Amino acid sequence: MTLVVLRHGESEWNASDRFAGWVDVGLTATGRDEARTAGRQLRAASLVPDVVHTSRLARAVDTADLVVAGCGGPASAGLRTELLNERHYGTLQGMRRADAVARYGAGPVARWRRGIDGRPPRDAEGRGESLADVRARLEPYVASTLLPQLAAGRTVLVVSHGNTIRMLRRLVEGLSDEQACALEVPTGQPVVVQAQRPASYSSI
């Protein structure tokens, strides 16, 4: 029983340093190459997934499809759920990071990005999430879907987003909030955990 977590390949807004959040942006050519490489890495490591979970955002779904094609995994995406979406960045969505710092200040932007309770200004529909909000929405997914599938002996690939993966590892690995918030999650790099040793993570 093995869990593999993967941040989607480089997106168009990663490349232009914009906050994407729940906005559906596509992969760059580099991002597609990262996904294909990740698939080959999984195949070479004999870690072909039995089931694949993704967010509902195209950059994660497209990454998962390319990974599966590269490793020979299951034809269906398995589970697509908003619970695995990136955090909603409120009014910051679509804004360049430099412009956000110019408008709100470096300190607030840093707290919104990596503080567990830092919530960016809400958008016109009242939406905007802290990392703690993301952690809370992941808890039912981890308890009712992910852990039972791992306990059943399946190899599960989760293709998601940087902040979501931080909080997913927080829950599964038993990290502190501070440790999870400090994690660096590069695009397109699979990270593996053996379920019988839940604190043992390694990049392929």
Rank of each mutant, 00 (worst) to 15 (best):
residue 47 L to N: 07
residue 48 V to R: 14
residue 49 P to T: 06
residue 49 P to W: 04
residue 50 D to E: 07
residue 54 T to S: 13
residue 54 T to Q: 11
residue 57 L to A: 07
residue 58 A to H: 05
residue 65 D to Q: 14
residue 65 D to G: 08
residue 67 V to P: 01
residue 67 V to M: 07
residue 68 V to R: 15
residue 69 A to P: 00
residue 69 A to T: 00
residue 70 G to R: 07
residue 70 G to Y: 02
residue 71 C to N: 10
residue 72 G to E: 04
residue 75 A to I: 04
residue 76 S to T: 11
residue 79 L to R: 13
residue 80 R to F: 02
residue 81 T to Q: 11
residue 82 E to I: 02
residue 83 L to K: 04
residue 83 L to I: 00
residue 84 L to K: 11
residue 85 N to I: 01
residue 87 R to Y: 03
residue 90 G to R: 11
residue 91 T to W: 12
residue 93 Q to A: 13
residue 96 R to E: 12
residue 96 R to G: 09
residue 96 R to T: 06
residue 98 A to L: 10
residue 98 A to F: 06
residue 99 D to H: 10
residue 99 D to F: 10
residue 101 V to P: 09
residue 102 A to D: 15
residue 104 Y to F: 15
residue 106 A to Y: 04
residue 108 P to R: 14
residue 108 P to G: 13
residue 108 P to Q: 13
residue 109 V to L: 13
residue 109 V to D: 12
residue 109 V to I: 12
residue 112 W to S: 09
residue 114 R to H: 09
residue 116 I to N: 10
residue 118 G to C: 04
residue 118 G to K: 04
residue 119 R to H: 03
residue 120 P to R: 07
residue 121 P to R: 12
residue 122 R to K: 14
residue 123 D to K: 11
residue 124 A to R: 14
residue 125 E to A: 15
residue 126 G to V: 03
residue 127 R to D: 14
residue 127 R to K: 15
residue 129 E to G: 06
residue 130 S to V: 02
residue 130 S to W: 05
residue 131 L to M: 11
residue 134 V to Q: 08
residue 134 V to K: 04
residue 135 R to M: 01
residue 135 R to L: 04
residue 136 A to S: 10
residue 137 R to C: 05
residue 138 L to W: 00
residue 139 E to R: 13
residue 140 P to R: 11
residue 141 Y to M: 09
residue 143 A to T: 10
residue 144 S to E: 15
residue 147 L to H: 05
residue 148 P to S: 08
residue 149 Q to W: 02
residue 150 L to M: 05
residue 152 A to F: 01
residue 153 G to W: 05
residue 155 T to L: 11
residue 157 L to N: 02
residue 158 V to P: 07
residue 158 V to W: 08
residue 158 V to F: 12
residue 160 S to G: 10
residue 163 N to G: 15
